[in-house]
Simulated assay, not measured.
Amino acid sequence: MSFSQHATTFAGRPVVDAQAGEPLPEVDAPAAWRFSFWDFDGSTPEGLDPKFAAEFDRFLDGIDCSAVHALVLGSWGYAAFADPPIAQLCAAADRLTSLEALFLGDILSDECEASWIRQDDITPLLEAYPRLHTLRVRGSEGLRLTPVRHEHLRSLAFESGGLPAGVVRAVVDCDLPALEHLELWLGVQNYGGDADVADLEPLLGGGRFPALRRLGLRNAEIADRIAAALAGAPVVGRLEELDLSLGVLDDAGVEVLLAGQPLTHLRRLDLHHNFLSQPFASRVVEELPGVAVDVTDQQVEQEWGRYTAVAE
């Protein structure tokens, strides 16, 4: 799998593109604004791309910032070299006073592979935007987070080909009383995904995030070990949705999961794009009547092994 299409909706709103240098399109309904500036001529310096910074400032000058509730940021120059505009976003917090949802890195594979996308410490964003209820981040090169308390964050997602264990532990250690949706694309060790089940134990033990109802541990090289841990994890009992998609989960891993605690209370179980055999995929659906089970797009192991949907 590669990221081949930009987000068309975000935080329940249609995405409207703001083209650098072009007049802003007119909108007659609530929208998520998307801003992107891709530029690479071989001379782009490291750090914040000055061309992006200037164009983003022009965008902010041309829009009613107080009416921006959702913002999608695509390429910030060439994201393999340029730093994300976190400081610039934080500096604009006194203008973007209504911002509630932010997608940092809506970048396609042909613009920059996910594993190449440079990130940074995202803690200042959570501190600068106390009203934020949705944060989605793509890319993990240089990604950092310090455990923080945030009163209003309801949805947090990290898309990566390899999520560092330090980031996983920091997420689990955050104090997020309103968090309902958590999505971690754990990825593979070769691309920095060195987290293991032990890093998730405080979460799986049910002692974190009292409002959590939707949990995604996706794109995981350690999918079978995660399934085994979830078989007896207290957090599962209060979930409505469990997402283990995009990984290398096989029949044995799902069998351990099914042999554990009941899953019939779930509204949805997402196992798509794994390595289940067709007979076993059908068995999962049959054993969980009333649960919307997605077992589509199962993969077949090749001679070179199994791969998560997103790595590079």
Rank of each mutant, 00 (worst) to 15 (best):
F3Y: 13
L203K: 01
L257P: 08
L179M: 13
E180C: 00
D250I: 10
A252K: 08
H152F: 08
G247S: 12
G192H: 03
T123V: 02
P289R: 04
D250T: 15
F52P: 00
T9D: 14
Q298W: 09
V197H: 00
A157H: 06
G247W: 05
M1L: 14
L269M: 02
L230A: 08
P130Q: 09
Y191K: 12
A54E: 15
R214F: 00
L176W: 04
P50K: 02
Y307A: 15
L179Y: 00
V236Q: 00
E100D: 07
P50H: 00
H6Q: 14
L125C: 04
L215I: 02
G193N: 03
W185K: 08
L276W: 03
D64R: 14
S36P: 05
D17G: 00
G42K: 15
R283W: 06
V172Y: 07
G77I: 11
R144E: 14
I107T: 12
R268S: 13
A178T: 02
L230N: 04
L244H: 05
P25S: 12
A220Y: 11
G290E: 10
R118T: 13
C174Q: 05
G192C: 07
D294G: 01
V197Y: 01
G205E: 06
D94K: 03
A198W: 03
V168G: 08
D28Q: 14
R138I: 04
P177E: 06
G216A: 01
S98I: 02
L184C: 05
P124D: 02
A18K: 12
G105E: 07
A79Q: 12
E286S: 14
L186E: 11
G74S: 11
T134W: 02
V188W: 05
L89I: 14
G162T: 09
H150Q: 15
E301T: 06
E55V: 06
A29V: 09
A11N: 09
R136D: 03
N190F: 11
T97H: 03
C112R: 06
G105K: 07
A170R: 01
T308K: 10
R283Q: 14
I86E: 02
L132F: 01
R169I: 09
L24D: 08
H69Y: 02
D120A: 15
I122D: 01
G187T: 01
L71T: 09
R95T: 03
D39W: 13
H272R: 15
N274C: 13
L203T: 04
A223T: 09
P14L: 11
S66G: 12
D110Y: 15
R169G: 11
L102G: 06
L156A: 06
V291A: 03
E100N: 04
E141D: 14
G216T: 00
R154V: 06
A114Y: 09
G105P: 07
R136Y: 09
Y191V: 06
A165N: 10
G21V: 03
A80E: 15
E46K: 07
P130Y: 07
Q298I: 13
P130S: 10
A82L: 03
P262K: 07
P289A: 06
V291P: 02
W38T: 04
I63D: 07
Q119D: 08
D49E: 09
D294A: 02
A82Y: 01
L108V: 05
E151T: 12
Q5M: 13
L60H: 04
L71Q: 11
